[in-house]
Amino acid sequence: MPQRGCTVLDLAFSVRDLARTRFALSPLWELVASVRVLKHPAEHPLHHPWSAQARRRLAASGLDWHLLADLVPQPPHSIPVFIAPPPTTSVADLGLELTVLRATPPEQVRSGLGGARAPRSERIDRLRSDPRRGLAELVELMSAYWEITLAPYWPRMRSLLEGDVLHRARLFAEHGADQLLGDLGSAVTWDDDTLSVGHHYARGSRHLGGRGLLLVPSVFVWPRVFSVITPNWQPTLRYPPRGVATLWERQSALPQALAAVIGRSRARLLAELDTPASTTELARRTGITAGGVSQHLTALRSAGLVDAHRSGRYVLYGRTEAAEVLLTAAGRPGDG
């Protein structure tokens, strides 16, 4: 069922559209969508464990992220498409997406910031008046914001997003496009070659025009869906992935199978890194001395199981994708 206060947008598919429908991940869109959560954390209680930590780190870093906040407004204003355009490849590469953003033609920036629902502020006016300089500053700001608020969590987020894509690929392989498109969330329904989407602004019926639909799972859109139907862009639907409600849960019981391979202390540290943490915090949680934690983290980092990210005065450690795979193979803590 469409969300309260939404109109309904019907996307009409042809056979060619079904053949060109694909999936992609977009770190840049996650960055932009996360700003909504940080600006209004009370409206996004599901993400409170992340937003509380991210706000503290932003405050400690001293980063001025007001331009980014201005570009991600509340309704009735809308997020300009050009700051997080639909990705052109299926590879999740923030650097590539930022390169595309920085190369946005000036006239496209001015057009995107000049519509009736475009956000307004003095900072945005400066971006609109000098797009080349403004985009360079915006890209630098986004890179810093990512390192502070999202980089430590990205391996876990990416694992969830990729898992959702694999699940839906299996649905398509086993049951066809009807099952795939009929399982995208409560705000989306599929019937008679038409995808009906709850939408805050658009209504009526649109034909995809043989371009297909780009499906982008997104952590920070939950519980809504976001769509792109603007001319010159790939028609896109950003939807919440399966399992997002448990993304920030901490499950730090010792993974016994992994402990038998890499040792109890290192397995315990990996389990504790469900949320990124400092050496001091890990020592407090585990009872291991700070020096011991540091030695174990150095070994885990050398093995490619842990990454380090600076947040203000602190260095935070987080699991890598390789560590996520190991924990999954060994059985998630609490699974047995």
Rank of each mutant, 00 (worst) to 15 (best):
M1W: 09
V8H: 10
F13L: 08
S14Y: 02
S14I: 02
V15R: 14
D17R: 06
F23W: 14
L31I: 10
A33H: 01
K39T: 04
L46S: 08
R55S: 15
G62I: 04
D64R: 11
P75N: 11
P87L: 04
E97S: 06
V100M: 07
A103K: 10
A103C: 08
V109P: 03
G112E: 13
A116Y: 05
E122S: 13
R123I: 04
I124N: 14
D125W: 05
R132F: 00
A151L: 14
P155A: 09
M157R: 04
M157W: 00
G163E: 13
L171K: 10
G185P: 11
A187G: 15
V197L: 13
A202T: 09
G204Q: 05
G210W: 07
L213S: 09
P217F: 05
V225A: 13
P235F: 03
L237A: 10
R238L: 15
V244P: 14
V244W: 08
V244Q: 14
T246K: 10
W248A: 13
E249M: 02
P255Y: 05
P255V: 03
A259M: 03
G263W: 00
A277N: 07
L282S: 12
R284D: 09
I288G: 07
A290C: 07
G292M: 05
R301D: 11
D307M: 11
A308L: 03
G312H: 01
T320Q: 06
E321K: 06
L326V: 01
R332Q: 15
G334I: 03
